[in-house]
Nucleic acid binder design. Structure first.
Length: 422
RNA sequence: GGAGAGGUGGCCGAGCGGCUGAAGGCACAGGUUUGCUAAACCUGCGUAGGGGCAACUCUACCGAGGGUUCGAAUCCCUCCCUCUCCGCCA
């Protein structure tokens, strides 16, 4: 959420930002309501002041035993006016807040302006794409031949786009999760968390999934709880409504969680095999930092996610999202895409974003700025480190042999307990 | 699911319907003083939103939302959350 005062004072910037994100929101109406609100406020506060003053007079009169009947009669009228004005004010504020929750975060000045994902810019590439002396297979063929993923029974048990990992395939998930968590904890200094996988509405609002993306979420209606679409939600919300100690910042958390996404409306596009699933595993990194360091922290975050791919020796490229591709809450975002030899394609395995104070304002997460003595909003960031299924795709496809087996990346061997999947 | 207790400032914790935006303590910041890894004393110190160039000033906030009243942290109603005990389950 953006501060109303900030919107008022930077209207053109906010308008331009929403436009560049291709997000429609009626900011002129918002400003109109803002003006109305302040007008009503001034009126009603003047009346309340009068009420407070006269009430004190009444108290004084009663103390000395005098009558205060005329004052009380007068205040009855004032009380009635206050009630009416308060009601009007509430109406204005309701509409105002509704619109305010739909105002997207402003893209950072460095984010490339664009109209579609075609305008995302290349940042860097790592590793080299290996030539194979045979035709590489897509991962679903490899997996089915090795009997490590059961696609069809996933549909039976739950529906399409649910799968079962089997045997060494299932163990591969555990191995990857442990490998990633260990790296972030031991090498990058994160604290490991294991949060709830269902969250309430307030939490979903705080990180910005609601109101915009409600249709993409699984909802347990009886309890009005959402299955998390990403570990970002429960982990960022750990500190909702808290004032963090300045000396405790930055706070770094990493967490494994499954992620649940309905992917409403996205059927038919890149959906084969493990590319797009309703349930998948992910290791997430979340940072709470001071505003002045957040863009440095974003670069660090990116490098920490890259570190996982480098350790697995998987070639990847980093792109920066243009404004049209930036999410509702993000100010700046890098995607990491891994190369998949079988699919002959780049697959997004990580998204590293700086939300600045957008989530912190919604979630009310602050810290005491020692320089100003004031409570200020922290900046929040998060990045995948990494999403598992597409990492698995890359491992299966890039490490496949012409016999149909898969060589296990060296860094993973001690976790998986074998150096080849056959 | 049943029974009970409770939600007050960064934290702990008082609070007869008007003198309580809120005692007291802790923490924190500044200062004085004493030389011994710190203490004592003094001062300051909630948040948000209006108005004003500013000094400043007004309003709101004691879990949330309603109600009663001239006036509510305090009385009434509804809801939410936490804790304890019982039941159920892993």
């Amino acid at each position: 959420m953006l501060d109303l005062k900030f919107i008022r004072e930077n209207l053109e910037l906010v308008k331009k930002g929403a436009e560049n994100k291709r997000h429609k929101v009626d900011l002129d109406r918002l400003m109109e309501l803002d003006a109305q609100r302040r007008m009503h406020l001034q009126k009603v506060e003047k009346l309340k002041q009068e009420r407070n003053l006269v009430s004190q007079e009444i108290a004084a009169l009663k103390k000395t035993g005098d009558t205060a009947d005329s004052q009380i009669a007068q205040m009855q009228k004032v009380a009635e006016q206050i009630k009416q004005l308060d009601n009007q004010l509430r109406e204005v504020e309701t509409e105002l807040k509704e619109i305010q929750t739909w105002v997207p975060n402003v893209p950072h000045a460095s984010a490339p302006v664009g109209t579609s994902e075609a305008d995302n810019t290349d940042v860097k590439a790592w590793g080299s794409i290996q030539e194979m002396d045979f035709t590489p297979k897509p991962h679903w063929e490899i997996a089915e031949n090795l009997d490590i993923i059961d696609f069809s029974r996933g549909s039976k048990v739950s529906g399409s786009f649910f799968i079962n990992y089997k045997g060494i395939g299932a163990k591969l998930q555990r191995a990857l999760i442990s490998f990633m968590l260990d790296m972030h904890v031991e090498k990058h200094g994160y604290t490991e968390m294991l949060p709830p996988f269902v969250v309430n509405r307030t939490s979903m609002f705080a990180t910005g999934q609601l109101p915009k993306l409600e249709d993409d979420m699984y909802l347990a209606q009886v309890d009005d709880l959402f299955l998390i679409p990403t570990g970002e939600v429960p982990v960022t919300n750990l500190h909702r409504d808290e004032n963090l100690k300045s000396e405790d910042l930055p706070i770094l958390y990493t967490a494994y969680t499954p992620c649940f996404r309905r992917e409403a409306g996205s059927y038919g596009k890149d959906t084969r095999g493990l590319v797009r699933l309703h349930q998948f595993d992910k290791v997430e990194m979340v940072k709470f930092v001071k505003p002045e360091t957040s863009y440095d922290d974003l670069e660090t975050l990116l490098s920490e996610a890259e570190d996982v791919l480098q350790a697995l020796k998987l070639p990847y490229r980093v792109i920066e999202l243009c404004t049209a591709d930036l999410s509702f809450a993000a100010a700046k975002c890098y995607d990491i895409e891994v190369w998949a030899s079988g699919l002959q394609n780049w697959l997004e395995v990580s998204s590293c974003s700086n939300f600045e104070d957008f989530q912190a304002r919604r979630a009310n997460i602050r810290y005491r700025n020692m320089a100003t003595g004031k409570l200020e909003y922290v900046h929040t960031l998060n990045g995948s480190g990494l999403a598992l299924p597409r990492t698995v795709i890359a491992i299966l496809e890039n490490y496949q042999t012409d016999e149909g087996t898969v060589v296990v990346p060296e860094a993973l061997r001690k976790y998986l307990g074998t150096d080849i999947i056959k």
